[in-house]
Nucleic acid binder design. Structure first.
Lengths: 219, 219
DNA sequence: TAGATTGTTAATCGATTAACAATC
DNA sequence: TAGATTGTTAATCGATTAACAATC
């Protein structure tokens, strides 16, 4: 049974973080199925693929109102469409890249070609060798001294930091003052994702290595 | 009150994954304190730094037998030592790098200089331009066709994949057959960490971007 | 209609937090 | 001794799983 209108909007009922984090994985599996011409899928089939339970799949989808049909299952195209709507919506988020070294260039390629729902507005570096160069995506690298002015005028949604931790600490206040609320920080091989001061995701490469080491040694 | 000997060993009482994942973060904060000459710390001070509760800090440490002194708190040097023992132990884990492109080189630098408890044994690539070149850490890039033989002879603990997803799918069976059990997969900007077929950590860069997008749009 | 499978509520499980006795 | 702070057990909270009525 469908929830009533008031609760059907994604905003109305607060969706828990574990559910949100599963959405992209659902999306990838369902996109695969759609590409392979699969028309229909059941919660138990999805569960098997995702490595979870049918209960959780249904529970998850029902946070957003329920996309299936009782007795039938889920139509792959409907599912894909609904989840894409949730994840990407109409307007893409504007991003600026700070640091155009090895890692920065790799990420800029990903951001401008593969990541959906994002738009790379501009890129910055402090090195005179980098400034003025054009990235593969066509964006020209600017002097990082322009960063503050640029952000004040163009209010990007997120900043992607691909610079050493020390440099990141210097840049952060500039971004905050310019009103930028979102960060992806790849400094020192961290992947941390913050928004409005709250850490959404924080994967320190070193932390992952240490944790794995512990588990392997104590197997 | 200390647990009895049987339960004090890390192996005896099965430690939950959330606890293990917090260990490296504790380690970093405690290393910072140690470097700054801090001698003593309480669970509530640690909790404030970690963004958690004093209860959790004590609960966590007591999974390993408890490192503190009632009425006093924790000695920073003891804490650092105990956690380092847990995370790094005596023997480092042997790693091989597969793919020495932009990302591979960045990771190799990290692995050989900053990551503790790991040793980079060898690096492989399929490009003739790469084969024979020496990485900054001194390791010479080998032809990936040697990978299987190398693994059979030297049985590395983990393989670090810095190659596209398609290439990774071709390499995986080779590694499995050669008895390699651990993987860090950076293919397509994923960071996934597997051991014996079990995913320890799985951070798809694209997934993080999508999740953040959802949250920002539904704020 | 009978079978299948969802939507949704209830039960379980595990992790976090609170409380307090032990003790430095 | 009194104050502080741990170790440890108990209470709470939230997420996952199970169960089942609704319904295609």
């Amino acid at each position: 049974m469908k929830k009533d209108m008031a609760e059907q909007t994604p905003n109305g009922n607060k969706v828990s973080l574990p559910v949100i984090k599963r959405l992209p994985k659902y999306y990838r599996y369902i996109l695969d199925m759609y590409s392979n011409g699969v028309v229909k899928v059941s919660s138990s089939e999805l569960a098997r693929m995702m490595g979870t339970t049918a209960s959780q799949v249904r529970q998850d989808f029902n946070c957003f109102g329920g996309f299936g049909q009782q007795g039938i299952g889920y139509h792959v195209d409907v599912l894909l469409d609904e989840i894409a709507k949730l994840l990407f919506s109409a307007n893409s988020l504007n991003a600026v890249l700070i640091g155009t070294g090895r890692l920065g260039r790799a990420i800029s390629g990903y951001l401008s070609s593969e990541a959906r729902g994002y738009h790379l507005m501009a890129a910055f570096d402090k090195s005179p060798d980098e400034i003025g160069k054009k990235l593969q995506c066509g964006v020209v690298v600017q002097n990082v001294s322009n960063l503050s002015d640029f952000c004040v005028q163009n209010h990007p949604d997120v900043a992607v930091l691909c610079i050493p931790r020390s440099a990141a600490q210097a840049v952060a206040p500039v971004l905050v003052e310019a009103g930028v609320k979102g960060y992806w920080n790849f400094s020192h091989y961290d992947l941390s994702v913050d928004y409005e001061g709250v850490t959404v995701e924080n994967v320190h490469l070193g932390d992952s290595l240490m944790s794995l080491g512990y588990r392997v040694r104590n197997l």
